[in-house]
């Protein structure tokens, strides 16, 4: 009886794993199938290298994803510039400096931050971050790339903090003790011993945070102003790939070039997040090997 039960449960778990893989494969196939017809009418070069996206134009339709690709990259890089130092700093603080009691309170609070719905973060971008930015920089409106970067940084922080903390915590205690025994100060130990020892875990944490930032939709839709022009600075409004899909897919007529092109945008986004996740997975695996 036990044996049968074992086998059934074994089979169920195998099935779960298989379903996840099939779903991923299915999404990829569907995206490709829906995106490929677009390139019968748009050249791949125009799609990837021009910046004018205006499929509902009265004059001439434009299908270039350059501006939104740049917007997505700007937001992601901006978010990482803000979130990475903050996240690593917080992780170091939690592992080495904070008292155990404070850590017990801080960790769940950080995890709650990860659970805030993106629409709420977007709302904060409109009513709080936007006005502050417009005041500081003396510009007329605070809905721009900087606003989006700050919000995405906030959303990526929990991932970066909690995975970096795990990585730092898994550095063997002996490293720490050896470093102190050799006369290094606490600061030197952290910077020169612990962080380098945990660096692959920290990199993986940042890349997972980046994956989150690239794919985020609602927040950037609400807080970045969504102007389709090619952005020239962080104080310009931007419209990301995710926002474009969210705005336009609801109204597009099926089986038109516009419809296929939106799937093309989705495919590009899928490939970017897939590569980022795969890289972070590879780095993570390397770091696990080092640990053992």
């Amino acid at each position: 009886m036990h044996n049968v039960k074992d086998k059934i449960i074994h089979g169920l778990f195998f099935l779960n794993g298989l379903i996840v893989m099939l779903v991923l494969l299915g999404i990829f196939v569907i995206l490709c199938k829906a995106a490929i017809p677009a390139f019968q009418e748009i050249s791949l070069k125009e799609f990837l290298t021009t910046a004018r996206w205006d499929p509902t134009s009265l004059v001439k339709e434009g299908y270039g994803i350059g501006a939104m690709l740049l917007s997505t990259l700007m937001l992601t890089i901006g978010a990482l510039i803000i979130a990475v130092p903050l996240g690593i700093g917080a992780a170091v603080y939690l592992t080495d400096i904070a008292s155990p009691r404070f850590r017990e309170i801080a960790k769940p609070v950080i995890e709650i931050l990860a659970g805030i719905p993106s629409v709420v973060v977007g709302f904060l971008g409109i009513v709080l971050v936007g006005p502050i930015i417009s005041k500081i920089f003396g510009i007329s409106n605070g809905l721009n790339a900087l606003n989006g970067s700050i919000l995405l940084a906030i959303m990526a922080l929990p991932t970066i903090i909690s995975i970096s903390e795990d990585a730092l915590r898994s550095v063997p205690k002996t490293y720490h003790e050896a470093s102190l025994a050799l006369g290094a100060t606490g600061w030197q130990t952290i910077i020169k011993v612990k962080i380098p020892a945990a660096v692959s875990g920290i990199i993986a944490a940042c890349m997972l945070g980046m994956g989150r930032a690239i794919g985020e939709t609602m927040t950037v839709l609400m807080a970045t102003g969504c102007a389709p022009a090619l952005p020239t600075s962080y104080l310009d409004p931007v419209r990301t790939m995710t926002a474009t899909i969210a705005i336009e897919l609801g109204e597009v007529a099926y089986d038109t070039t516009h419809y296929y092109a939106l799937f093309g945008v989705g495919l590009v986004l899928f490939i970017i997040t897939f590569v980022v996740n795969m890289l972070s997975d590879m780095v993570l695996r390397k770091y696990q090997k080092v640990r053992i």
Binding site: R52, D54, S57, L58, V59, A67, I126, G130, P131, S134, N141, L143, L221, M222, G225, C226, A227, P228, A229, L230, P237, R239, I247
Partner: peptide
């Protein structure tokens, strides 16, 4: 075509908030 610099807001209320500020 609209100027590509136009901020494309997510509803009437957002336009009013934007113009107010």
């Amino acid at each position: 075509d609209f100027s590509p610099k136009m901020r494309q807001m997510n509803g009437n209320a957002q336009i009013i908030e934007g113009v107010k500020a």
